[in-house]
C-alpha cells in the first residue's frame, strides 16, 4: 500500500494539488462565506483525479502486480488526504480569523467547531457518492463529480440555511457562545466519525464495483 501511495504522490498527483489547501486561507477574508474556501478541496480532488485519467494512470496501474482493491484503497486514501489537507489549513485559518482577526462572521456560519463538523459531513456525503460512482464507471470523473458536487452543494445550502434562519439552531451552532460549546463539539465529533465512516464505506462499496469493471 505504501508503494501505491508513493506512486500516487510521485506520478499521479498534479503539482498544483499542494497549492489548493492554501485556498482555505479565504477564511481569513472578513465576512466571507466560509463554505467556499474549504470547498476548493473537492475541486482539487476533481482536477487531480481528472489529471490522473488524462495521464492514463489506470492503464499503468492495472498492469502492476497489485490487487484491484489496493488500487481503490490508494486512490481513496489519496483523495481523503487532499480533503483533510484542505480542512487542516481551514481550521488554522478559521481559528486565526475568529480569535485573532475578525471575530464573528456576518456571512454564513462562523468558523467554529460546528462549522468544521458540517465540513466533514459535507465531505462525507461527497465521498460516499463520488468514489463508488467513479470506480463503478471505470475511473471516469465527469458524471461522478457532477452528482457528488450537486449533493454536496445541496447539503451546504441546507445546513447554512438552517443555521442562518432557524433561531434556536442559529443560537446553538453559530457564534462562539460558551453555553453551547458542547453541542458544537458534538457536531464536530459526529462529522469526523461520519467522515471516517464515509472513507471506509466508500472503499468497500467501490471495491465491489471496481472488481467487476473492465478497464
Amino acid at each position: 500500500m505504501i508503494k501505491l501511495l508513493k506512486k500516487e504522490i510521485k506520478l499521479s498527483y498534479l503539482p498544483i494539488v499542494w497549492f489548493f489547501p492554501f485556498l482555505s486561507c479565504l477564511l481569513l477574508i472578513p465576512n466571507y462565506p466560509y463554505c467556499v474556501g474549504v470547498s476548493y478541496g473537492l475541486l482539487s480532488l476533481f482536477i487531480n483525479f481528472n489529471y490522473a485519467s488524462e495521464n492514463r494512470d489506470l492503464e499503468y496501474t492495472a498492469g502492476l502486480p497489485i490487487p484491484r482493491r489496493d488500487i481503490v484503497k490508494a486512490k481513496i486514501i489519496s483523495g481523503a488526504f487532499i480533503e483533510v489537507m484542505q480542512i487542516a489549513v481551514g481550521v488554522i485559518c478559521g481559528l486565526i480569523a475568529s480569535f485573532v482577526l475578525w471575530g464573528e462572521n456576518a456571512v454564513g456560519i462562523d468558523a467554529n467547531a460546528a462549522y468544521f463538523g458540517f465540513v466533514f459531513l459535507g465531505f462525507a456525503l461527497f465521498n460516499i457518492i463520488f468514489f463508488p460512482t467513479y470506480f463503478g464507471r471505470g475511473c471516469k470523473t465527469g458524471l461522478s463529480m457532477i452528482i457528488a458536487t450537486v449533493a454536496y452543494a445541496a447539503f451546504v445550502i441546507v445546513t447554512e440555511s438552517i443555521v442562518g434562519f432557524v433561531p434556536s439552531v442559529h443560537k446553538a451552532l453559530d457564534g462562539f457562545d460558551g453555553n453551547f460549546i458542547g453541542v458544537r463539539i458534538a457536531v464536530l465529533i459526529v462529522g469526523i466519525v461520519l467522515y471516517a465512516a464515509s472513507v471506509a464505506g466508500s472503499y468497500f462499496v467501490s471495491v465491489g464495483k471496481f472488481e467487476k469493471v473492465s478497464l
Partner: peptide, 20 residues
Amino acid sequence: VNCYPLVKISKYLDVTKSFY
C-alpha cells in the same frame, strides 16, 4: 508507454521497480 508524459523516465522507473 503513453502514461505520465511529463514525468522523467528515471522517476517512472523508480516508482515502477518498487512493485517488483
